[in-house]
Design a protein around this nucleic acid. Structure first.
Lengths: 230, 230
DNA sequence: ATAAAAATATGTTAAAAAACATACAAATGT
DNA sequence: ACATTTGTATGTTTTTTAACATATTTTTAT
């Protein structure tokens, strides 16, 4: 029944493409498939990682609880991608929580098997090094933009980030992810009120169009300008 | 003349301790030693990494230029430690700049040699994976604290961070790094004025004592409390 | 030794964003 | 179908922090 796991491991786009057939078979034998409903918690801050979690279907938010329980989204995951691998490789407990924002299919690769393959396959190690290094660059960047940009700049950046991460619908304008205003706020380091207010302002300026949780980007250049100016 | 490089590579505390003698010799042959004066730029945002830079002596700040040229320090390096390895491993140009805050001795390991050893030594790859993963956790944490904590909390956290990173002098109280108020501000996401003001307030509350750039921690528990409360 | 520049200190004002309040709409459960 | 909860919207007040102004001290360069 873990056909979804097999698909990931065989996927040409995944980091596993550098493995030989034997290694792939070993991974498949030592991975399990799990299903999550929208709003389900996949893991919580403080939990111990049990394996490498691979997102096969659905979308996931990774967030930290900050001062007074205030939530900050540090990453948005999409298929095919890993979640929770930072803690696994740092040999730490999770420092953030993961929650499904859509129904999800997840494949968990057993830790020992992964390490066995890693110890013989330097290509896979390189891939992981590259991924971690890229994400660290992204995180350092976010630290600066979330602290230095003003509300409009932060929101504009978040909208562009969501568009780049999840792409757009067939209408060539609607961001392909449907977040609550609260999640948008938690992604952009602002209160829900300010997210709602600023989205409304953007809509009144014809930079975006709002229809419930649907966000349509009407003026991409304008949005980029707001994001850059801060 | 690159005896300092040799010392690093032979150092039992460095990640190179997992290498065999032959690998260590190869590294030594393909590394160069450079000296930097206080305030010298080691590399700039946008530069291309040429090798793995290892800090043998001195202290270095890693910072990014943000909105309107406003500086944010993302990391403080100490010996023996790497700098600029994120960009190297991500195969990107530097996303931050590095500047000596003391006279420094630096050892640069040639990229090709490093990769050759990495491809045969999975232990070294693991070390690098672990380091990057730890630092990513640290960075995500900073994103949250710098955005959510108030000025006093951010400054308290920075002082504790400096103490943990560089240790304390023989008096068991003075933080073993001497930064300008501007650097402290750039580390803590605040203006120089506010760093000076808040340091003065801490001093008047007998939490710290100030003597030029010397910062003495008088009430560690108090400082921790301020940092945690935000 | 002295001028110039840089760093530190502190008070005042202005801007940004959070907190708070309230209303309304939409989704959910019974 | 209705009540309850959750999410969205918007106006007002308060807090926080940046921006600005101006001394004073320290460092650096000549």
């Amino acid at each position: 029944m873990n056909i979804e796991c097999h698909n990931i491991i065989d996927n040409q786009m995944s980091v596993f493409s550098v493995l030989n057939q034997e290694e792939k078979e070993l991974l498949k034998k030592n991975s399990t498939c799990t299903y999550y409903k929208k709003n389900d918690i996949i893991y919580k801050e403080g939990d111990k990682p049990s394996g490498l979690i691979c997102l096969s279907k659905g979308k996931v938010k990774i967030f930290k609880e900050g001062v007074g329980g205030r939530e900050q989204i540090v990453r948005m995951a999409k298929p095919v991608g890993f979640i929770g691998y930072r803690a696994l490789f740092a040999e730490q407990n999770y420092l953030a929580s993961a929650e499904a924002i859509e129904d999800c299919v997840i494949c968990t690769i057993e830790k020992e098997t992964l390490y066995k393959i890693l110890s013989t396959n330097s290509e896979l190690s390189f891939s992981i090094i590259r991924s971690l290094a890229s994400e660290l660059g992204f995180s350092n960047n976010r630290t600066v933009t979330l602290t230095q940009k003003h509300i409009r700049g932060r929101l504009a950046e978040s909208l562009l980030f969501l568009k780049d991460t999840y792409g757009i619908e067939d209408d060539e304008a609607t961001i392909k992810v449907y977040l609550s205003r609260e999640d948008i706020a938690n992604l952009s380091n602002m209160t829900t009120s300010n997210a709602i207010r600023t989205l409304s302002t953007f809509a009144s300026e014809k930079i975006i169009a709002l229809d419930g949780r649907k966000i349509k980007i009407l003026d991409l250049k304008g949005l980029e300008r707001i994001s850059e100016l801060g």
